[in-house]
Design a protein around this nucleic acid. Sequence first.
DNA 1: ATCGATTTTATGTCTGCACATATTAACCCC
DNA 2: GGGGTTAATATGTGCAGACATAAAATCGAT
Lengths: 233, 233
Amino acid sequence: MTTGRRPAWRAVHDEALRRIQTREWQPGELIPSEVALARELGHARATVNRALRALAEQGLLERRRRAGTRVAEAPQRRALLSVPIVREEVEERGARYAHALIARGAAPVPEAPRLALGLAPGARAERVRALHLADGRPYAWEDRWVNLAAAPDFAAAPLDEISANEWLVRHAPFDRGTLDYAAEPASADAAAHLGCAPGTPVMVLERATQGPDAPVTWVRLAYAPGYRLRMKI
Amino acid sequence: MTTGRRPAWRAVHDEALRRIQTREWQPGELIPSEVALARELGHARATVNRALRALAEQGLLERRRRAGTRVAEAPQRRALLSVPIVREEVEERGARYAHALIARGAAPVPEAPRLALGLAPGARAERVRALHLADGRPYAWEDRWVNLAAAPDFAAAPLDEISANEWLVRHAPFDRGTLDYAAEPASADAAAHLGCAPGTPVMVLERATQGPDAPVTWVRLAYAPGYRLRMKI
DNA sequence: ATCGATTTTATGTCTGCACATATTAACCCC
DNA sequence: GGGGTTAATATGTGCAGACATAAAATCGAT
C-alpha cells in the first residue's frame, strides 16, 4: 500500500540502513535475498530492489547477480560534489558575484593544457585570464585555454558580460572531464591578483572538459587563501 | 523487449543525453512528458522514468510534478567522490600501504574538534596521531580525536595493526559527516613527519563524522606535498 | 478583477508478473 | 579426482496498469 508521506522504498531503505548501522547485518555478511526481504517487510520485490539499489549506489552494499547482496567491508558513504561554477559558489555564500576580464587572445599553449586539449606541439589556442570577485574582493584567479576547434564562436563571446565558464557551459556541449585539486604556492600573477604574497598556499583546481567529439577547455583556478572545499556525506 | 547487451533504460538515457548535448533540447526548455517519450521511443513509461530520473540525479534535468521536466539551465554533471580511506587511496595508486602509530592517549580537546564532537569546554577525548605511508614514504599525517562516548571500545583498539580510521569504520556505526579540504602551510609537526619544510603548501582534509546518536570522530589529515585530489565527471 | 475552490496533468511510486543474465553449485563422465 | 556441462538461484531489467501527489490551470462567486 502507498504510505503517502514516506515512500515505501524509503522505509525499506531506512530499515536496511538501520540494520547496517546497528551491525545487525555485519560488514561483509550476506543479507537476505530481495524475495525474502519483500516477504518479510510486506512489499513487492521491485520496491525492495529500488531501496537496495540506492544503498549500493551509496557504497553501503555490494550486489552481484546470483552471489547476492552483502554489506560493504568498509561501508563508505559517497559524497556528491557538484561541479563548481564559481558564480554559484559565491552566491551560495550570500555574496555578490562579479568578474573582471584581465586578458584574452590567442597564444602558444604550454604543455599541460596542450596535452589536455589534444593539440599538436607548437599549436596556439585562445587564452583567457580573469578574476572572480565576491563582494568586490578577489575570490579566484582563472587561467583558461579554449580549443577553438571545439568552440569556434568563443572568440566572439562577450566575456565582459558573462564569464568564460558560463558562456562555454551554455554554448558548447560537454560530456566528460576531470577535476584535480591541489595545494600549491601562489604564482606571481595569481598572488598579484588575489592580493596575497607569492608562495602563499592556495587551493588550485585544474579542470579539463571534453565535449562529445573533442576537448573543449582547460582551466586552472587559484582560489584566494582561506578557501575551503566543503562536502557533505 | 529486453535488449540484452544494453538495457533499454540506458538507451533512453543516452538518447536524452544526446538531445541535451546537441541543444536539441535547450537549457531551461520543457522536454516531452514521460508518456510522450515512451510512445515515441517505444518503451514503457517506467523505463523512461528510470532514465530521466538518472539524468536528474546527475543534475542535467530538473523534474517537478505536474510542472514537467526541463533541461537544467547550466547542465552540470555531478562528481561522485567516495569518502577517502587512505589505505585504498594508496593501494589504488599501486603502492604498498603502511601506517605508523606515533602517539595516542586522552588529552584536552582544542576548539575545532571540540565543537565538531559536541563536547563541553574543558572536556577530554582520545587523541591519535599517525603517519600513513606509501611504499615506505610519508603520504599523510593524521591528527585525530575520538569521542569515547560514541565509541567506548576505541581505547582498546589495536592501532598498530589497523588504522584508527579502519577500526572506526568497522566498529562504530556512522551516518553523516562533513568533508573540508583546504590548502594550508604545513605545521611544524606535520612538516617533520612528512619530510618537508614547515610552511610548505599542503592539502588538508578535515573530516567530522557523526553516528546515529552522537559525533564519533574528527580528523585532520595533512597530505604530503604533491597530493592531488582527482575526480571524474 | 481577485481570491479561493476545483479540475487537470505530469511525475512519483507501487505491484505483480515475466524474462534476462551472471554466477555458483551440482552433476556426470572419464 | 579432474574437467567440462548443466541446473539452480539472486539480482537486473522490462512492462502494464493503478493510484498518489504536487502544482498549474481553470472556473466561480464575490
